[in-house]
Amino acid sequence: MTPSLVVLTDFFAVTNRALSYAAGLAVPLNAQLVLLHVRYDGMPVPEGYGGQHTPRGERKTDQALLKLAADQTVPTEVDVAQGFLPAALTEAVRRHQPLFVVLGRHSDSTESAELFTSVVMDVLRHAPHPLLVVPTVGWDKFPPRRLLLAVDGQPFAFADQDHQEVLSRLLHATNATLDVVHVTDDAQARPDDGAVLETVRANDLVNVLAESRLHEVYSPTIVAGVLEEAARQEADLLVVVARRHSLLGSLFHSSVTAQLIQESAIPVLVLPAED
């Protein structure tokens, strides 16, 4: 079965940039694209693209989606769903079994950025699947060559083995390097370096990971520490292991995952893990 990447599309330029990013990754991953369009779920759509749910408007949307698919440089299919986004995405993941889902981050205002982040977290709660969030601006490197993995230093495991393989497949396909960052803040003591690395090795996220690739950082806040290290490393993709209890709102936890999604200047790949 040919692997796929599901791209949530709403026709805005930010999403088209995410689509271009996904199409670029699909080539080395030997994957096809699935354009998922959910109508309407309260998310904004451009004027004239079926916002009123008229037969004519929906036909126009379908035609635009087919044209968008035909314009891609890799095999692309269209999936139009009804109802609420989390349910539609859950069904799309079940049907297409993508390596990961791709979304473009809206950030033209603080309010829209917060709304987008809440939508992403809601999706992760209902459909815990690897998710790649591509920001509007602030980055220009492609393909990603320097990946930074943020971990909390505690053991973790993935419920699905396919999720476990996403990072290694991405590293192999792009010939990228991987560094790991662990942030110690005022609330927690610094753990043993070997123990932190073992949490990564135990999940076979990479074949080999040298101790020199681990960066222990002190910062008053975890988010600031991760983002500062990403900038220092000149990383072009941030990978975050997010536990279910953090998605439900509690460390990596006081919405750290949500803040990284909202504030990162580079694309963020979220890998949901069990508690």
Rank of each mutant, 00 (worst) to 15 (best):
T184G: 05
D192M: 09
A195K: 11
L167D: 07
A150L: 07
T117S: 15
D122S: 13
G153E: 10
F116R: 09
G194W: 00
S112Q: 15
D186T: 10
P130S: 03
G194T: 03
V134D: 07
A157P: 00
G194P: 03
V180F: 02
F116S: 07
D193L: 02
A88L: 07
F116W: 12
E114V: 08
G138E: 05
P143V: 01
G138Q: 04
G153S: 08
D160R: 14
P155C: 08
Q154C: 03
T199Q: 06
V102E: 05
V181D: 12
L197E: 10
L115A: 15
L103C: 06
Q97G: 06
H172A: 06
T90W: 14
R169G: 07
Q154G: 01
E114C: 07
R169V: 00
A87N: 09
L147A: 12
F158D: 00
A87K: 02
S112Y: 05
R94K: 15
V119T: 10
P191K: 07
V181H: 11
Q161T: 14
R190A: 11
H182D: 11
A189M: 03
F156R: 06
T177S: 15
D185N: 15
S107D: 07
V134A: 03
P143F: 02
Q164F: 12
V151I: 09
L115R: 13
Q154S: 11
F158C: 01
A127G: 01
P128V: 09
V166L: 06
V133P: 00
A113H: 03
L115Q: 11
A173D: 09
H126G: 06
V200G: 14
W139V: 00
H96M: 05
V196E: 10
F156N: 01
P155V: 12
V166S: 03
V102F: 11
A159H: 01
D192Q: 15
L170R: 04
D193K: 14
S118D: 14
E111W: 13
H96V: 02
V93D: 12
V183D: 09
L131Q: 03
E91M: 10
A88P: 15
F142M: 03
V123W: 00
V102A: 08
S168V: 03
H172I: 00
H126A: 05
Q154R: 15
R125M: 08
G104Y: 01
A173L: 00
L103K: 02
A113C: 08
V120P: 03
P144G: 02
L115Y: 05
S109K: 04
V181M: 11
D122W: 06
T90A: 14
F142K: 13
D193H: 12
P143R: 05
A187H: 10
V151F: 03
L178T: 04
H172Y: 00
V180A: 03
D193S: 15
D185R: 02
L132C: 02
L171V: 09
V180P: 08
F156I: 14
F158P: 00
D152M: 10
V151C: 04
L167S: 06
D192S: 13
V151Y: 04
S168R: 14
E198Y: 07
E165D: 05
V93T: 02
V183W: 13
D152Q: 13
E91T: 15
D160C: 09
T184V: 12
